[in-house]
Design a protein around this nucleic acid. Structure first.
Length: 290
DNA sequence: AAATTCCACAACCGCCCCAAA
DNA sequence: ATTTGGGGCGGTTGTGGAATT
């Protein structure tokens, strides 16, 4: 019952592709076009899995692909779109002709994420770490001590406990001189080195938002990313071809959304999502849904 | 000059949804 | 009705070259 396997997984070649293998795929596609990838290895004379052939073609061999560096304009588009749709790389790649989701993903992970983190901006929310940290304390998923009516996670119990934000793991932490590192919030507990930590003031509610970010991305014509109430993201053209032009100020630190102190975590996420969808209707009309 | 670390990116992994058998 | 694989996707890893010590 069911389909026969496309290949003998234990006997197919894996690892880097040779120029000869690339030539076989190119020759096959040139004469047969793109169809059923499971037939390609057999017909093209390759000892590879069809899925591997498909990935090689879509990520590297396609003639319409660009192989040069990302331009500042493309970088700006990625930032804008990531702020809106998150890590939906295929969605972002559709707006960048000649780029694949793998390209965009790699560029984000190796360049842009670090660039943002260096500037004190959370690469996921695109807000300053101080703001993200503050909101950790406001959302109600953290338990409240009913005796004291206080959230026990909001303030270190001990005076010799310091707080910080792990920029790589995107988690605030408490660090006690005696106990090492203690973490709160979601995700796995772990420790991290000093280089991964950005110190923040001791109380999340005493944080000022005077996070001086300077030019958000001066090389890419981003204007200074200051903490402000509204982001200004204008999209002037979405052509039928799928070309996307981003213009305007990238205010990485800004967001018009705010988590109400008494709303649930899920409600806050849904509210933020609705807001995003209103802001980027045409993008979000693309083929992904909830 | 050699060893080590860092970085970029190609390739793979694993999951999901859907269609084919 | 059920099983299985294809295709799509995001996350992770392996590796070669560059940069640094």
């Amino acid at each position: 019952m069911g389909r026969p396997p496309c290949c003998d997984k234990s006997n197919v070649k894996r690892g880097p592709w040779t120029p000869e293998e690339d030539a076989k795929i190119l020759a096959y596609v040139a004469s047969h076009g793109i169809g059923n990838w499971t037939l390609v290895p057999q017909k093209a004379g390759l000892n590879r899995c069809g899925k591997s052939c498909r990935l090689r073609w879509t990520n590297y061999l396609r003639p319409d692909l660009k192989h040069d560096n990302f331009t500042p304009e493309e970088e700006e588009c990625i930032l804008e779109l990531h702020k809106t749709v998150g890590s939906r790389w295929s969605l972002i790649a559709k707006r960048l002709p000649g780029r694949t989701d793998n390209d965009v993903k790699n560029y984000w992970n190796t360049k842009l994420k670090k660039k943002l983190a260096k500037m004190g901006i959370d690469p996921v929310t695109h807000k300053p770490f101080s703001q993200v940290f503050s909101e950790y304390g406001k959302i109600s998923c953290f338990p409240i001590n009913t005796n004291t009516n206080k959230n026990p996670f909001l303030k270190p119990e001990s005076n010799n406990t310091s707080m910080g934000y792990d920029i790589m793991q995107r988690q605030p932490y408490f660090s006690s001189s005696s106990n090492g590192v203690m973490r709160f919030g979601l995700g796995q507990s772990h420790t991290c080195g000093p280089s991964q930590v950005q110190s923040v003031p001791a109380s999340p509610f005493e944080l000022s938002n005077e996070c001086v970010l300077g030019d958000y991305l001066s090389s890419s014509n981003y204007e200074a990313a200051q903490v402000q109430e509204e982001g200004h993201i204008r999209k002037t053209s979405v052509e039928n071809s799928g070309n996307y032009s981003c213009h305007g100020n990238y205010s990485g630190a800004s967001s018009s959304s705010s988590f109400a102190a008494d709303s649930s975590f899920v409600e806050a996420i849904l509210a933020h999502d609705s807001e995003m969808r209103l802001q980027f209707l045409d993008i979000l009309d693309d083929d992904y849904g909830y």
